[in-house]
Design a protein around this nucleic acid. Structure first.
Lengths: 223, 223, 223, 223
DNA sequence: GGATAATCGAGACGGTACGTCTTGTCTTAAA
DNA sequence: TTTAAGACAAGACGTACCGTCTCGATTATCC
């Protein structure tokens, strides 16, 4: 999975010292963890197992990661970077509903299909059981993702209802955008985590259309 | 749900006549597991710890439960029996939107606040990590809960839009009810699992009003 | 093994109370213990195993025996009663060297061959590891056996060297007899316990001839 | 015996280069086992107990020993190395009866007194109950001891009766020596295992004198 | 272009918990 | 009252991983 990505720094990357780190070992560990998660599940994923599969000493793993959760997190960041990117809008233009729709479809695909979403599912699951994992996920990956996407949804909304939002400033628009994003994502997470199946693209479209209609209705109170 | 069963354990049901089980030991185990889950979290919850806290031999636990998941599951069933009951409707009457609203509020409370919902959160989390747990939860607790609630939501809908549903038979009404229930629960689960906070009652009302409006709009296409 | 012996009271038999004791259960336990000792060895012999094999409840065993050692002990007493008997001497006559020789051969056979001697070997082995077993064996079975045989050896000696022993009284003769018995048995136990093979009958004869020669030499100091 | 081996464990010899074994842990385990054997007896001696007493992890014990028997065996070898050594004979000279006598006294002391001989007694006892222990003892410790001592006894005999043995070659002398050694040891083992008391030094001398007289008588048939 | 220092593989180590087994006590229901 | 059946508290079994620790054997800079 991550074997094709060369090197780029990730979110959890150790800041400064990391002197002569062995890149082969790093990739071998990430791949081994990914493979073993699929093969044996989260509980069957052990540091010893990863070390053995990667042909690496346990100490090497403990030198660079604090736990198996951190290894999976690095994998998640790596995978999501490509899978959850938005296309660059035309210069000077802002994000559109069409782009939002495309992103939601990609998100649903990412969340609902192994092995890509398997890591996120596992981390979300473990976040229910472990405070540290929850914090890592929400101050890191999910936090950044949400911040980025909320802003882009805000742009979509602004493009859709030119007058709205401007009155109360960007802050008000952000709250609206945040609520809208939540409303759009809730059914997807619900589907992925509670029903555990691939997510029907129609569900994405239905949710988006529905929420946009509601948003429009709210923004034109007179009607 | 398990409301019809009298008292015994839900998992590991004895096929044979269930010889002389010690009720004190059973309750001590369930309580110890509950306490330890809150104190030490799911990973810190061990069979040895439960046995020690409950003053019970490990073998006694293994005799009646297959794993700590099964112990928590029994706790869940026990707790939910009271917390997630619907009030009995008037004789001859069916469930109403007001009762549905009340139930949703109780559900949100159950899901969002420790210690009651802590067990469900943990099991939902672990279900992401372990196939057996997922199956147990969905063929058991969640399956029964969903079946029961779907039917009651169907009755609410039927009462709300007298003509609708009747045309296509009860089957079509059930599908509609199922979708509505999903739409009502998704934001609650999203809130509880993703944001991990207590659920604002206003969220429940907003979701219900919104979905009812949409349902009404769908059922009167001419308008 | 003990199945053919009907009922007779043994040494370790509970003295008085034993009211409505089930004789079938008693024999089944003794036989099961014997069989399992041969099949699985002393460490593999468990109360649970005996109970299962005998079709008897554990409690029934604990009611009548204190441990598996006591069960084996009862078996030993039962078996030895026949195998280690001396033929009755002619009325008025005392035991002779020929009878002693015969007894030693029988003893060697008993000690050296399974399954008869297997129990005694096991108890002797366990007596090295457990004080209670040692005491049981020496105040009980071995003590009585030694007392009986010492007296008979004394009679043999008295018949062999008419004058000797009489001078110092029976006590001196008993000490001599005891030493002689030890000297005769030592090589047999050594062979059985240290080399663990069947005992060559020639070894018995050699030891007896040798010791008798020495005894004679000692009793006729002038020569 | 094991006198030629330098230091390491005797059982569980590492075929590979025996990686960095912790000598402190090894000694702590051996000592703890020794202490606990005396304190609690063989049955009360557990791997968990040894680990706790030695301040060592169970896994460390299982890494280097297969069972508590193997630990005791290592202790036996260690203790016997000093206690059962023969003094080096003068260069060019062979072992003498005086040296044999001294050795037998030391052997009797070793076998009859705790804690040194306690281990051997326990292993001899357990060898009656467990085939593996019997084999370990006889192909290992006892086998080497017997081979060594038989040869030395042969030298004693050869020195005593210059002509004898030479006629029939060393083989015949070895058989004689072996029988003599058995005859000397049998009463000691009998005393130690059957009567379980310290061995009277006079018993050693009596047995040696008696057996030497018999051996001399046999080697000079004319007299 | 060696010296030096961090990283690497390997794996021993003190621990904790696992799930199983047996102990000896107890309770129940049938005879 | 004894029996078969078996639940119970206790605790040892042997195994699996945990996270820390020492080893030499590579590297890869830096002097």
């Amino acid at each position: 999975m991550a074997a094709t990505r060369p090197v780029g720094p990730t979110v959890a990357e150790q800041p400064a010292p990391a002197k002569r780190r062995n890149e082969n070992a790093r990739l071998a560990v990430l791949n081994a963890a990914d493979d073993l998660l699929v093969e044996r599940g989260f509980d069957g994923l052990t540091i010893e197992g990863i070390a053995a599969r990667a042909g690496v000493a346990k100490q090497t793993i403990y030198r660079w990661w604090k736990s198996k959760v951190d290894i999976l997190y690095d994998n998640l960041v790596l995978d999501a970077e490509d899978a959850l990117a938005w296309p660059e809008p035309a210069p000077g233009a802002s994000y559109t509903v069409a782009e939002l729709r495309g992103y939601l479809h990609r998100f649903a695909l990412f969340l609902g299909t192994a092995p890509a979403g398997r890591v996120l599912q596992a981390l979300l699951g473990h976040a229910q059981l472990d405070r540290r994992t929850f914090d890592l996920l929400h101050t890191g990956f999910l936090g950044e993702l949400t911040a980025r996407d909320t802003e882009r949804v805000r742009q979509c909304l602004a493009g859709l209802v030119p007058g709205a939002g401007g009155q109360d400033g960007a802050g008000a628009g952000a709250a609206e955008a945040s609520a809208l994003l939540d409303a759009l994502l809730a059914p997807l997470y619900y589907r992925a985590l509670l029903a555990r199946g691939p997510i029907d693209p129609a569900l994405v479209d239905a949710a988006l259309d529905e929420q946009l209609a509601l948003a429009l209705a709210r923004s034109t109170p007179g009607v």
